[in-house]
Amino acid sequence: MSLENVRLSQSAKDRLVWLKRTTGITQWNVLCRWALALSLKDPSTPLVKEIVTDSNVEMSWRTFTGQHGDIYLALLKQRCLADGEEPTEENVAKALVVHLHRGVGYLGGHKGMATVEGLVGSLVKQ
């Protein structure tokens, strides 16, 4: 597992397809960034540790993060440390997959997040 490519599970892809339709946000990477941020905001440890990334949605790390790759990498490393894991490349890659998928679940599980306003509100509310 590495950070070079980010790949989604089929269930995550299905939820993102719905979100693309309802929010009007057409890029996978934008929705995935929201999902990751939403999961990282939650201080609890994700329950699922293994995700099967079996869909045809795949993007490079650069596409996923845009010009903010260093920031996303630092956030993931910090989360590994907060969860008691060494921030090795493998642990950071696992954290990315687990948090990305948990965040997609959060986005797809709340009707209020079916709009851009709902997405913004989900991250700025305390």
Rank of each mutant, 00 (worst) to 15 (best):
35 A>R: 02
18 W>H: 01
52 V>T: 15
74 A>C: 05
62 R>I: 06
68 H>M: 09
21 R>F: 02
61 W>I: 08
92 V>M: 03
83 D>M: 14
19 L>F: 00
32 C>F: 00
21 R>D: 10
47 L>M: 11
84 G>P: 14
75 L>T: 11
28 W>G: 00
54 D>V: 06
91 N>H: 04
40 L>W: 00
29 N>T: 10
79 R>P: 07
76 L>A: 07
94 K>F: 00
59 M>H: 03
86 E>G: 02
47 L>Q: 12
73 L>A: 12
44 S>R: 14
23 T>M: 04
49 K>H: 09
22 T>G: 03
86 E>R: 09
75 L>M: 12
49 K>W: 03
19 L>S: 07
45 T>A: 12
35 A>P: 10
66 G>C: 02
87 P>L: 08
62 R>L: 02
75 L>W: 06
90 E>H: 06
16 L>I: 12
68 H>E: 11
25 I>L: 03
53 T>S: 15
53 T>D: 13
87 P>W: 04
74 A>M: 09
44 S>L: 08
36 L>H: 05
62 R>E: 10
49 K>Q: 13
29 N>G: 02
80 C>Y: 00
63 T>Q: 12
81 L>R: 15
18 W>R: 00
51 I>A: 07
90 E>P: 05
88 T>E: 01
27 Q>K: 04
53 T>K: 13
50 E>T: 13
57 V>R: 04
70 D>M: 11
24 G>P: 12
86 E>T: 14
55 S>P: 00
33 R>M: 13
66 G>D: 08
30 V>M: 04
69 G>E: 08
44 S>T: 14
70 D>P: 04
61 W>V: 01
45 T>K: 14
81 L>T: 15
19 L>P: 03
75 L>E: 10
33 R>V: 14
41 K>F: 09
15 R>H: 05
21 R>Y: 04
42 D>I: 11
88 T>V: 02
52 V>D: 11
43 P>A: 12
55 S>F: 01
47 L>D: 06
51 I>Y: 07
52 V>I: 12
85 E>T: 05
28 W>S: 00
22 T>L: 06
81 L>S: 07
84 G>H: 01
25 I>H: 00
93 A>G: 04
17 V>L: 02
63 T>F: 06
49 K>P: 06
32 C>G: 07
80 C>T: 08
63 T>E: 14
58 E>I: 15
35 A>D: 09
35 A>W: 05
43 P>M: 11
80 C>L: 05
31 L>M: 02
44 S>A: 12
45 T>W: 07
73 L>E: 08
76 L>W: 00
34 W>V: 15
60 S>R: 12
